[in-house]
């Protein structure tokens, strides 16, 4: 059992710069959780199901929350979301969609599939910092998350 403070935030993000901006913003917002990045959907699912290079549980600790980009090469974010929320074990992990697309239908669909949050990816770095702070405050200070397994 990993203490919550050590459980990582899983960021599923293909764009290196975006990942880095979010990572920096989270640190700057005072979030000290470990960060794990998966560059596409298949990798994210490998991680969560501890497959491929994440076969050992040490290398694939259960994330405390998942920040999921929708626009991914290969298995898209929505498919990843459906897979997580269809799995009895994984579906209790909060999944927050982070995307630059803002189709209103997309938002509704994601919540229907079980998303726990939907955040617009900001264009500027300062705004990204604001977003990261709010995320951190909400998920790690304002609310409780389920225990990891």
């Amino acid at each position: 059992m990993i203490p919550p403070a050590n459980r990582p935030i899983l960021l599923v993000e293909d764009n290196e710069t975006h990942y880095e901006a979010m990572a920096r913003a989270l640190r700057q917002a005072g979030c000290n959780q470990p960060l794990v990045r998966c560059a596409d959907g298949d990798e994210a699912l490998d991680y969560l199901y501890r497959r491929g290079r994440f076969r050992s549980s040490e290398s694939a600790a259960r994330p405390i929350i998942i920040l999921l980009d929708l626009n991914l090469p290969g298995t898209c974010g929505q498919e990843v979301l459906v897979a997580i929320k269809s799995d009895a074990e994984l579906k209790s992990i909060p999944v927050i969609i982070v995307t630059s697309l803002s189709d209103p239908g997309e938002v509704r669909r994601c919540y229907q599939f079980g998303a726990n949050g939907f955040i617009r990816k900001r264009t500027g770095y300062d705004e990204t910092v604001v977003t990261a702070r709010r995320l951190s405050e909400y998920w790690f200070q304002a609310s409780e998350v389920p225990d990891g397994l």
Partner: peptide, 17 residues
């Protein structure tokens, strides 16, 4: 066009920091 511009901006910030 927007994506590379964004990356450019982010990297400028990273550079400045």
């Amino acid at each position: 066009l927007k994506e590379p511009l964004q990356s450019l901006l982010f990297n400028c910030r990273f550079l400045a920091e």
